[in-house]
């Protein structure tokens, strides 16, 4: 298979990349790992005349803990960079594990987290766990930079708030006091399958009592969805099996899945119930796993 002709730029900085995107407008597309952009080009879903390659910018690759800010993940970190990050293994193993559940090894060596978020596929594995941990996103464009909650970045399938000349440069998981978090992916096979349902949970525990909770559902609505009724229901209550069961039922009522080739809407709703229950149990009892 061959790609159509296009021009290629490899800018040396984010600012230069944004300027190129601004100059060429809708003719241009940013490319990082290429695992989404090149496939869309092969399928004639995209036909950029200019590609702006940002995948190798070293300033987008870092993953580090900065006291006072939190864990900073560069948008150009690949899924395997995240999976193998010592910082994440120490602080949020749940994030490393979520990255590990994406696609397969070869794809994880190419695909970046910034690209994964920008592509905004509803079944993506990184958004639920990152949203559950209150992750913020730094977005840079020709008019300056802004910081948003990741939760507010998605506007629909394959759609985000990003302007044409804007790029995500980093994610920050703030020091937010969550004591446990986890992501459950339910796919039809262990490797290379998209999520039928993805459920992330994060909790702040004080002894047995849940002080705060996040439940974020993937693949069951046009954008990653917080099950806010279930979250509120959990606050201030003593953790336990029955509570998790009830929260699972609430979350399953909150989601809005569609039926497609992978599963029916009814099945997805029921799987949200099951995996919400399991995710809460794990986040409460096992920490960041």
């Amino acid at each position: 298979m061959y790609l159509q002709d296009f021009e290629y730029f490899r800018p040396g900085s984010v600012e230069e990349a944004c300027q190129l995107l601004f100059t060429y407008g809708f003719k241009a597309k940013a490319i990082a790992g290429g695992t989404d952009v090149l496939i869309k080009m092969k399928k004639d879903l995209l036909a950029p005349e200019v590609l702006v390659a940002i995948g190798q910018l070293p300033q987008l690759k870092n993953i580090e803990y900065i006291p006072g800010r939190g864990v900073v993940i560069g948008a150009g970190a690949t899924h395997n960079d995240i999976q193998n990050s010592k910082v994440l293994h120490e602080k949020y193993l749940s994030v490393a594990e979520a990255a590990h559940q994406m696609a397969n090894n070869q794809v994880r060596n190419l695909g970046t987290v910034g690209g994964n978020i920008s592509n905004a596929v509803p079944s993506a594995d990184m958004p639920p766990i990152l949203i559950a941990l209150d992750t913020t996103v730094k977005i840079v464009g020709t008019k300056g930079e802004r910081t948003l909650l990741l939760e507010d970045v998605f506007t629909g399938p394959n759609q985000t708030v990003l302007e044409h000349d804007e790029l995500i440069t980093e994610f920050v998981i703030p020091d937010n006091g969550f004591t446990g978090s986890t992501y459950f992916k339910f796919g039809l096979r262990a490797s290379g399958a998209l999520a039928v349902v993805g459920v992330a949970a994060a909790v702040k525990m004080e002894g047995d009592v849940i002080k705060d909770a996040r439940i974020v559902l993937g693949a069951v609505s046009p954008v990653p969805l917080r099950a806010k009724k279930a979250e509120n229901f959990l606050k201030g209550k003593q953790a336990g099996g029955e509570l998790f069961t009830e929260a699972g039922i609430m979350a399953s009522h909150e989601c809005r899945p569609i039926s497609d080739i992978r599963a029916s809407a009814e099945y997805r709703k029921d799987m949200v119930r099951v995996f919400t229950m399991r995710a809460l149990d794990k986040a409460v009892n096992e920490g960041h796993v």
Binding site: M1, Y8, R10, I31, G33, G34, T35, L38, I39, K42, K43, L51, A53, G55, Q56, N80, A103, N104, N105, Q106, V107, N109, L110, G192
Partner: peptide, 26 residues
């Protein structure tokens, strides 16, 4: 040719990648 089958796997700086999803320029 879309990153599913792995037949085109090569090592890029020692890491396996699908060469059907890599631009030579990169």
């Amino acid at each position: 040719e879309q990153g599913d089958c792995g037949a085109c796997t090569v090592l890029l700086d020692g890491k396996p990648v699908n060469s059907c999803m890599v631009l030579t320029l990169s």
